[in-house]
Amino acid sequence: MLDDRARMEAAKKEKVEQILAEFQLQEEDLKKVMRRMQKEMDRGLRLETHEEASVKMLPTYVRSTPEGSEVGDFLSLDLGGTNFRVMLVKVGEGEEGQWSVKTKHQMYSIPEDAMTGTAEMLFDYISECISDFLDKHQMKHKKLPLGFTFSFPVRHEDIDKGILLNWTKGFKASGAEGNNVVGLLRDAIKRRGDFEMDVVAMVNDTVATMISCYYEDHQCEVGMIVGTGCNACYMEEMQNVELVEGDEGRMCVNTEWGAFGDSGELDEFLLEYDRLVDESSANPGQQLYEKLIGGKYMGELVRLVLLRLVDENLLFHGEASEQLRTRGAFETRFVSQVESDTGDRKQIYNILSTLGLRPSTTDCDIVRRACESVSTRAAHMCSAGLAGVINRMRESRSEDVMRITVGVDGSVYKLHPSFKERFHASVRRLTPSCEITFIESEEGSGRGAALVSAVACKKACMLGQ
């Protein structure tokens, strides 16, 4: 009897593995994704193909990295998701002549009506938060230079001027797309009239992360975010950046690689679950690469896999709870928690219980395998993109072996128990001629924006502006 049951459990697990095998990517698959990513990057950089390229390769006008001589107080704003952060950054000489960066910050959550109302409502709310922060720190009387981390696709015309191309991540505030974001912020500050600010720089969160990590390690020339969304930036040779005049030196390019796949480059790798996630998203047909990796989508992918296993009578005796059938019910943090389970399955059992399920031991094991399959594919897909960037940098610099540091931020990278190990191992397999160091950014977005502002202020002083 026991043997029969054991055989049935083994057969069930084997069927589960057959279904989950769809998520496995072979090294040849990853090399294919990497080569296609490089081709799209090239198209994004070139003037004649930029418009139709899915990977936009947006110039950021960040050319210099901090040298350690900029000092002063800077205000930093960070808008990239449902939370908005205001930070005071003091850049100065530390002990023994070292450079020191001290920060104080406060988080504000953005109400739904500000995210989806008008641009005026959104930026009025942001300036209200700045006003509140300055009151708390008794700094209303000071006109501070301000660095703005704005983590949406922007076409820069200068370091302090950028046109919002399109909202992502659930934002829909009308009247912002096609307009200068810094102008919208300046107008809102003017409307309030109770404080003055000098907006000197606007950067993407990947750029802010790279600059913040450069402060720790001067070989950091790539910034990457794996959180709600997924994106990367890197220092490109100016001669390859056709959208900006000049051939000397390097400029940081914001790849906006989340949109890779929007022209069909990933079609052969998309599964039924991916198509369902895409169809029910706020932007169907867009940001397809990001939807395979980002935390906004990972939990939902797992939920759809679990429903398939229920329908195949391989999980929960073929019956799903009402909660499990509800879109968004299986949160991405559950994926991390399930994979963090120590082996007694308590954590998995508790999560499934909150979803109205009474799982068996085998159910718990199957749910864990589903989570591992989805998150491992995410790590491997992400590795193909980064390997594409790094191999490109090595080739354009004609280096036999390139040493490089990548600064990384984002909740999936930082909080998932195995993502970074799987990701690092896969990147290294795909970049055999590179020695890569990964560092995690601390308060990256805010500190990085302030350091970019410090560079901009120093330049302005040198130019006598």
Rank of each mutant, 00 (worst) to 15 (best):
Y108G: 02
E312D: 11
L386Q: 03
T206W: 02
G94C: 08
S174P: 09
E331P: 08
V200C: 09
R429T: 11
S174K: 07
D217H: 11
V86Q: 06
D158E: 08
V203K: 12
D3A: 06
S340Q: 09
Y349I: 07
K142F: 08
L307M: 14
E70P: 07
A176H: 10
E96P: 06
G388Q: 11
P432H: 10
V401W: 11
E272D: 09
G117T: 04
S109A: 12
K414W: 02
L386V: 14
E442Y: 07
S453H: 09
I211V: 09
V427H: 02
Y234D: 01
C213R: 07
F260G: 00
G261S: 01
G97L: 11
S321L: 14
T116W: 05
S69Y: 14
I348F: 01
I159S: 15
F123Q: 00
I366K: 02
D198Q: 07
T354S: 11
M210E: 08
L301Y: 09
N254C: 07
A232S: 07
V91L: 13
V91Q: 07
E395I: 10
D267K: 04
G261Q: 01
K140G: 05
L314S: 06
Y125L: 07
P66M: 06
S109E: 15
E440F: 05
I126G: 01
C233M: 01
E421Y: 12
K56T: 03
D4K: 08
Y108K: 06
S127K: 15
A425H: 05
F260T: 00
V401C: 10
H105Y: 12
K143T: 14
I163N: 14
Q138W: 04
C371V: 08
G448R: 08
L307A: 12
R46W: 00
I293V: 13
M37C: 03
I436L: 14
A188P: 02
R345E: 10
A384L: 11
R191F: 04
S64F: 14
K291E: 04
A176M: 11
A320Q: 02
Y108A: 02
Y413C: 02
V86K: 05
A282E: 06
R192V: 12
G81T: 15
A10F: 12
R368D: 02
Q106L: 11
D400G: 07
I404G: 00
E52A: 06
C364A: 09
E265R: 07
N180H: 08
G385Y: 02
F330R: 00
M8G: 15
P417E: 12
F171C: 13
E435G: 05
N231K: 06
M381V: 08
L146C: 12
R447Q: 13
T82I: 13
V199T: 15
K104E: 12
K190Y: 08
L185A: 04
L134D: 01
I211Y: 14
S426F: 08
P417G: 07
K39E: 14
E395V: 10
S212D: 08
G444E: 14
K13G: 15
L324M: 03
E290C: 08
C213P: 01
S383I: 01
Y297I: 01
V367L: 11
D132N: 07
Y108L: 00
G229A: 09
I110N: 00
F150T: 11
A6Q: 08
I366R: 09
C364W: 03
G464K: 04
K291G: 04
A10W: 07
R403H: 05
S174A: 10
G249M: 02
E399F: 08
K414A: 06
C233T: 04
V101G: 06
R345Y: 15
C382A: 10
E196C: 07
K161M: 12
E51W: 09
I351T: 05
D311Q: 06
M107D: 15
L77E: 03
A425V: 06
G162Q: 12
M87G: 06
Y289V: 01
V226L: 09
P66L: 09
R7C: 12
A320W: 08
G147N: 11
E120G: 09
G227V: 02
D160Q: 07
R403Y: 13
N350R: 06
A176C: 11
F423A: 06
V427I: 15
N350D: 04
Q465N: 01
T326Q: 14
S445Q: 15
G246A: 03
V406Q: 01
L415A: 12
E265Y: 05
F152P: 13
L122H: 09
M298T: 05
S64V: 11
G356I: 04
Q287G: 08
M402Q: 09
K346A: 05
Y214W: 13
T326A: 10
G81W: 13
D124V: 04
V408M: 09
G68Q: 13
F419Y: 10
L58C: 09
S212N: 04
Q286D: 06
D267V: 06
T376P: 00
A456I: 12
L292I: 15
L315G: 02
M115V: 09
D400K: 14
L58D: 13
V338Q: 00
H218V: 05
K296S: 11
K414C: 07
G356A: 05
V101D: 10
A460S: 08
F123C: 15
A10E: 15
K172T: 11
R394H: 10
G285L: 03
D365K: 04
V207N: 10
D3H: 04
K459M: 14
L306W: 01
S336M: 12
M41Q: 04
L47D: 15
S280V: 15
M251L: 09
R327P: 10
G94I: 07
L270F: 05
G294S: 12
G328F: 07
C230G: 04
Y273A: 05
D409H: 08
L79N: 07
R422F: 11
D274A: 00
A208G: 06
V200I: 11
M34W: 04
T49E: 04
V305C: 07
E322Y: 04
T431F: 03
T376E: 06
L122Q: 06
D187V: 02
A114V: 15
I293Y: 04
H424N: 02
M197S: 08
E22C: 05
E22Q: 02
K420P: 10
H424T: 13
P432K: 03
Y289H: 06
K142Y: 05
M139Y: 09
K104M: 09
L30Q: 15
E435F: 11
S64G: 14
S280I: 08
R155Q: 10
L301G: 01
E272A: 06
L288S: 15
Y61D: 12
V91M: 12
P417W: 02
M115F: 12
G223Y: 03
C230W: 06
S174E: 10
H416V: 09
I436Y: 02
I211Q: 01
E442N: 13
A449R: 06
G464H: 07
P59T: 06
S396L: 11
A460R: 10
G117S: 06
I436G: 01
E236A: 01
S109F: 04
M57I: 04
I436D: 00
N350V: 10
T118S: 08
A176W: 06
G170Y: 13
R394M: 04
E442S: 06
P284T: 08
D187I: 00
V199L: 11
G183N: 14
F152M: 15
D274M: 00
T209I: 11
I366Y: 13
F269N: 05
L288W: 11
G261D: 01
A21T: 06
P417R: 07
R250Y: 15
M393T: 00
D29Q: 11
S54T: 12
C220R: 02
E128H: 02
C220I: 04
A449N: 08
M107E: 15
G258V: 01
D113G: 14
N180Q: 03
S373P: 04
N350T: 04
P153E: 06
E319P: 02
G385K: 00
F316W: 03
K104V: 06
S151P: 14
G147H: 11
M115D: 08
A10Y: 06
V401E: 15
S69H: 13
R403W: 02
L315Q: 00
H416P: 03
R7Q: 11
L165G: 14
E70K: 15
G80A: 11
L25F: 06
V207W: 03
D409Y: 05
I189G: 09
E9C: 14
D205L: 04
F260K: 01
L165K: 15
M57W: 01
L165V: 12
F74D: 01
V277N: 10
L2N: 03
T116A: 15
T103D: 03
P66S: 11
I189D: 05
P153H: 06
M402F: 13
P145Y: 06
S131Q: 03
Q347K: 12
E399K: 04
K102S: 05
T376A: 09
I351L: 11
R36C: 08
V71M: 15
E272N: 08
